[in-house]
Computed example of a mutant assay.
Amino acid sequence: MDTANMCTVERRGRVHLITLTGAGEHRLSPALISAIRAAVAASPGAGALVMAAEGKYFSNGFDQAWARTVPPHLHTTMSEGFRGLVADLLALPMPTVAAVTGHAAAAGCALALAHDSTVMRASRGFLYMSEVDAGIKIVDYFGELLRQKVPDAATRRDMLLRGDKMTATEAVRRGVVDAAADGGVDDVVAAAVAAAEGLAARGWDGEVVAEIRKAVWPAVWGKVKDYGTEAAAAARPRL
């Protein structure tokens, strides 16, 4: 499958900007996950990374339509590929910012929270862990990621066991995201790029940033590290 048109990469100053393209839901199929991982791997030399998306969705989670077309034993391809993507982001030698330009549900929500900080669109979109409504169990590293990145136990309960949909205002109030940006998609991306540019301007040693990140979230890193870098690359599906 051709992944070239699934996301774009551009440099804005010192910021490496990855954008999931198109007006769809940006469902995380093995092909899209591979495309994002390739885009993340193309970031050397940048001072910070921002991930954004076109349209009304940041990402609506795993591609369940794809899963229905393949044998059950291939379903782990999606989850394990995403585990590798989380590992890539945690090991990346630069600060990372998610520009949540629209709805971020299930694995899409986890993708946003796998970044160091998050800027969310104030006027549209929500964070939503849909698994309890969909009747789908969460995998171990999802649980650990939410445990580490959502600071309040009641908020984690509301997200995971009640399936609450959280607006930007509520997410900022509860400490799940860092900022809500007014305006459209371009405004949210601009706010995230500005935040990332400010971090890049600090001139930190990228390898130190990566090692501190792993130390800050050791339980998450412990569950994904074997799927990062060369080991994960070797395990990626051939599409």
Rank of each mutant, 00 (worst) to 15 (best):
T8F: 07
V9Y: 01
R11E: 14
R12Y: 05
R12P: 01
G13W: 04
V15N: 02
H16F: 05
L17N: 08
L17T: 03
I18Q: 06
T19F: 00
T21M: 15
G22S: 07
G24H: 15
G24N: 15
E25S: 06
H26G: 01
R27N: 08
L28F: 01
L28S: 01
S29I: 02
A31G: 09
L32G: 05
I33D: 00
I33H: 00
A35S: 09
V40G: 12
A52K: 01
K56M: 06
S59H: 04
D63W: 14
Q64K: 15
Q64T: 05
Q64D: 03
Q64S: 08
A65S: 12
W66G: 07
T69N: 14
V70N: 04
P71L: 07
T77W: 15
E80W: 13
E80Y: 09
G81C: 05
R83L: 12
G84R: 03
G84I: 03
L85N: 00
L85G: 00
P93G: 06
M94Q: 13
M94N: 08
V97E: 00
V100K: 04
A107F: 02
G108F: 03
A112P: 14
D116T: 13
D116W: 01
S117V: 13
G125F: 07
F126L: 06
L127S: 11
M129K: 08
M129V: 13
M129Y: 13
S130N: 13
Y141V: 05
F142C: 06
E144S: 14
E144P: 11
L145N: 11
L146A: 03
L146R: 09
Q148G: 09
T155E: 15
T155Q: 14
R156Y: 04
R162H: 10
R162M: 10
G163R: 15
G163A: 12
D164Y: 11
K165Q: 15
K165D: 03
T167Q: 02
A168F: 08
A171K: 07
V172I: 06
R173W: 07
G175Q: 06
V176T: 09
A181N: 01
D182V: 11
G184Y: 06
D187A: 14
A195Q: 14
A196F: 00
G198Q: 09
A200L: 05
R202V: 02
G206N: 05
E207F: 04
V209F: 02
R213K: 15
K214W: 12
K214T: 15
W217Q: 10
W217M: 12
P218Q: 04
V220H: 00
W221Y: 11
W221I: 10
K223S: 15
V224Q: 01
D226H: 07
A234L: 11
A234Q: 14
R236V: 01
R238Y: 07
